[in-house]
Design a protein around this nucleic acid. Structure first.
Lengths: 248, 248
DNA sequence: TAAATCTAACGCCAAAAAGTGTGAACTTGT
DNA sequence: ACAAGTTCACACTTTTTGGCGTTAGATTTA
């Protein structure tokens, strides 16, 4: 239903009800849900698509996008992690995909500011979990702010895995200030830094520069990335790993 | 079933199965659960009660004990909190009871290292939630250690609510080192400190002293506390609030 | 090795939860 | 003021979850 609203840009309640063969009441309920997730905007009589810039940073959307690619990248990244070492990662959905596989490389020390990952890893035996505190941001379901940056700076981990919303030939980018600060702190506190981004992030920019690509030791992309984009990164002497996407 | 094991001290699988009229398989499953919660110990053929000192500090046990008293105390403590102010609390079940009522005094800034409270408060509108990071301890479901102490020391809140496992005439006590350090840091960073303990904690001691009672501005106990115990605290010039227990 | 005990896998049943529609009451805009 | 739109409360259906027992295979103990 979200997709339908996206395509049309703006739709009326009754139209949606007929399209999906459900009652108007159900449309209301579902739309309320999508609105609370920041995916659409409701107005009297219908709903319209949310400006892409705002919902692209939205958790509900991000979780459903490029899942196959993220899964592939996650499997590859996990292969880079040594059992017994320590890993820090940020509040990206790509990192969450990595977290789901971390039980395979125990024992492990895991550090993150992402609440969903904390929920996921808390009960896992063999994982020593360190949470990065800070102010809770519902839109990201993570802890950010000065407190978080301080907490990151007080640590050092063997591997840092971060993802950013855009990557050009020279820099990684993100649209939000608070997140940028945390990612930067993470990069500074990792012995080895991994940038994990799916192909939709390549050759794009966003408001803030997070760091030059030199700050990363390995860049992991999925196999749907254009060969020439990969080549361009390699020409700049970056190590680029390509994770094979299996699912459709 | 836990109670049965406690009473008997040690019971065989088949005996438990017959007593409760269930299959041996079910006994196994339930006992595995109790064991993972630290309530009992399993051995081949049966199970035995866990030493009381270890399970009294266990979350699963603590959550079921003195719920009516904790509820009463929580209601009282919430009454002490001003909307718009900031509150910090620790990983005690008493504090959790307080957390359940915090939605009533929004807007509010809440700081805690207790994961269950974080889960509970994260979706609540009107509450600005700050998490204290640190190493995750499954037995307490909270974040402790140096990182947590550092995080606490970097903050200051209007009200600090802590609970301890034992309170004598002069001091508050707790049996675990890591928790003691965090509680002490919290006491140092609160403008006003509240000690919230149910009557079973009074006139008892535990391994470590957390702080002298002078460190607390208000001591809240439930109405089942012996009058003479309350009087003794008041004789020492402590402010003692008594929360009326309503339920049986 | 044999008996006893434990674990894993599957299927069944009941309880809980989620989703849906209806009609009434309430809001909003013209 | 009226009509369209929205929300609420309730009942109903479907789906999901949780608990339990049976069987079969693995593990342990004597």
């Amino acid at each position: 239903m979200a997709e339908h609203v996206m395509r049309q840009g703006s739709v009326s309640m009754t139209e949606l009800a007929e399209t999906f063969g459900v009652s108007v009441m159900t449309v209301h309920r579902d739309l309320d849900l999508l609105e609370s997730q920041g995916m659409v905007r409701k107005f009297r009589g219908g709903a319209s698509a949310q400006a892409s810039s705002v919902f692209e940073s939205n958790i509900a959307y991000r979780k459903t996008a490029q899942t196959a690619e993220k899964e592939a990248i996650a499997r590859h990244v996990v292969g880079l992690i040594e059992p017994g070492s320590s890993v820090m990662f940020d509040d990206s959905t790509t990192a969450l995909a990595v977290a789901r596989h971390l039980a395979e490389v125990t024992p492990l020390t895991v550090v993150t500011n992402f609440l969903e990952a904390i929920r996921l890893l808390a009960p896992v035996p063999g994982i020593r979990l360190m949470a990065l505190g800070g102010e809770y941001y519902p839109t990201h379901d993570s802890f950010l702010g000065v407190a978080c940056v301080d907490a990151v700076e007080a640590m050092n981990t063997d591997t840092v895995v971060v993802s950013t919303s855009a990557v050009s030939d020279r820099h990684a980018f993100h649209q939000e200030q608070e997140i940028v600060l945390v990612k930067r702190a993470m990069l500074a506190s990792g012995t080895r830094c991994v940038l994990a981004v799916d192909h939709t992030k390549l050759d794009r920019v966003a408001l803030h520069r997070v760091a030059p690509l030199e700050a990363f030791d390995i860049i992991v992309v999925d196999s749907r990335a254009p060969a020439e984009a990969i080549q361009r990164l390699r020409d700049r002497h970056h190590r680029v790993d390509v994770a094979e996407v299996t699912e459709p």
